[in-house]
Amino acid sequence: MNIKDYLEHKQVEVDRFLDQVTPAATLPPTTLHESMRYSLMAGGKRIRPILAIAAAEAVETNPPGLMAVACSLEFIHTYSLIHDDLPSMDNDDFRRGKPTNHKVYGDAMAILAGDALLTMAFDLCSRPDLMKGCDPTRQVRLIQELAYGSGHAGMVGGQVFDIQAENRDIDLAALQNIHKHKTGMLIRAAVRMGAIAAGATDRQLNDMTGYAEDIGLAFQVADDVLNVTGTREELGKNPNTDAERGKKTYPTFYGVDGAKKFADECVARAIGRLSSFGQSADPLREIARYITSRKN
């Protein structure tokens, strides 16, 4: 399969849905909605919602509410980027080639836009019109997966570990713990939510969970490498920011070439976990390979 075509097609579908469900910039409070849309519709690879869709496809079903479930992950991801860019956190000036949200709308509005996006993620998964036909027990399980992956035990916890590690001499185990949570848990939630929505068996869910954990690690290693090797034009933000903030990364421990090799090993292990699936899981396999070959 052509993974580029697959990703572009799914991205168009995701973007269309996001545009439909997000309040118009002309709707009061207009500045809040404009700020939300500024970051949500600024582009991006949409990897997390696409992973949820691909996981459902691997189970060979098209469950009700799948697009709402998938796009809830993009709302969470976008809110986390807005907050992560704030002066009190990573203090970034650019995101996806554009000024960061707080540079355009101010710190207070950026915080509130992030808050609103976070809340809307759970609204999507609970709206009767968007989730019509979804079994109520399964729906609650999906909402719990989203909360677990994005909250104190998942992404937010990882962000705390990351902040606390700045300018500290952490070891490799501590670095892996940071990224298992900060990056890995939302990717894990994406794959699991797609599989759960599609009615995956326990074995299928276990295999996909292992796959998700492996590609989550590969994704972060690839990000660390790109932060060292990428240009501002490629990344859409300034490179070498990790070193400037005193953050240890995978290239710190392995070197750039060693980190690339480690990421490739994670991808191979992830693909191996899908051996019980047929061709329906090919998008998941190709996404795993794409993660380490991307330029941004």
Rank of each mutant, 00 (worst) to 15 (best):
E233V: 11
K10T: 08
D282S: 11
K45G: 10
L142D: 12
E244S: 13
F219S: 03
Q220V: 07
I215D: 13
T119V: 12
I163Y: 08
Y79N: 07
R232F: 06
R273G: 15
T241M: 10
D107P: 04
L117E: 08
L117R: 09
E8D: 10
E57M: 05
L73R: 02
Y6I: 04
K132A: 15
V156Y: 01
S35G: 15
G65D: 11
Q176L: 14
Y254E: 06
V225G: 10
E74G: 06
R273Q: 11
H9N: 15
I287P: 00
R138I: 08
I287M: 09
L274A: 09
G149Y: 00
L112K: 03
D242P: 05
A197Q: 10
T292V: 13
D19K: 11
H179G: 08
F262P: 12
R192L: 14
Y38Q: 10
A116R: 06
D15A: 11
D242W: 03
E74I: 04
M89N: 10
V191R: 01
T252E: 04
L186S: 07
K248A: 07
G43C: 05
A195G: 13
A110G: 09
M89E: 04
N227P: 04
L172A: 07
N296V: 10
T30G: 12
C266H: 10
Q204F: 01
G230C: 11
D107Y: 01
I47C: 05
K295V: 12
Y105K: 10
A52V: 09
M109A: 11
N206E: 15
N240I: 04
L32N: 03
M185E: 13
M67P: 00
V104Y: 00
T229Y: 01
A24L: 12
T61M: 02
